[in-house]
């Protein structure tokens, strides 16, 4: 066992893990963060995407020990740091309003990847959105509304940034 100290969604955790424990299993089974899901288990589908030090990664392809000393944000930490009744993150809100989901299984990963894209490129074109979330698969093939949701979120995020300036 190896001991790790990780911040997840704003809270600090100290745990002993086997080196072979995948980050997604640590989050779900040891911390109960089941908002992050396991989809394909082969690094293709992106359903397990979380942010590691602010960058989107596939948590089925990172070892829990590699998150030692790092900061992890899951889908559960987006809305007001996870506080109950907190307002949704603008990207969550856009997925809700534009109905950017059908069964919803890919949604946590889609949202985490979309935030990473918008952090890097605040006003992506439709093509840039489709390329930006190419690491996330929606098996309902609900991509049209997912792209619309990211477009709406981009507008809202850049609008609010402009308002603050």
């Amino acid at each position: 066992m190896t001991s790790i100290n990780v911040r997840v969604d704003g809270a600090s955790y100290s745990d002993d893990v086997e080196p072979r424990t995948l980050l997604v299993h640590y989050l779900r089974e040891q911390l109960g963060k089941v908002g992050t899901v396991v989809g394909c288990d082969t690094s293709n589908c992106g359903a397990c995407t979380v942010h590691l030090d602010g960058q989107a990664v596939k948590s089925c392809t990172v070892l829990a020990v590699q998150a030692d000393g790092r900061e992890v944000t899951t889908i559960e930490g987006l809305a007001g740091g996870g506080a109950p009744d907190a307002a949704l993150h603008p990207v969550q809100k856009a997925f809700h309003e534009m109905h950017g989901l059908q069964c919803g299984f890919c949604t946590p990963g889609m949202i985490m990847a979309s935030i990473d894209l918008l952090n890097e490129n605040p006003s992506p074109s439709e093509t840039e959105i489709r390329e930006g979330i190419e690491g996330n698969l929606c098996r309902c093939t609900g991509y049209q509304n997912i792209v619309r949701a990211v477009q709406q979120a981009a507008g809202e995020l850049s609008g609010s940034a402009g308002g603050q300036a």
């Binding site: 690094s43 590691l52 960058q55 989107a56 990664v57 990847a113 894209l117 690491g135």
Partner: peptide, 9 residues
């Protein structure tokens, strides 16, 4: 190469 998340790691 692969996708955004894979290119991060």
């Amino acid at each position: 190469v692969a996708d955004r998340q894979v290119r991060r790691r």
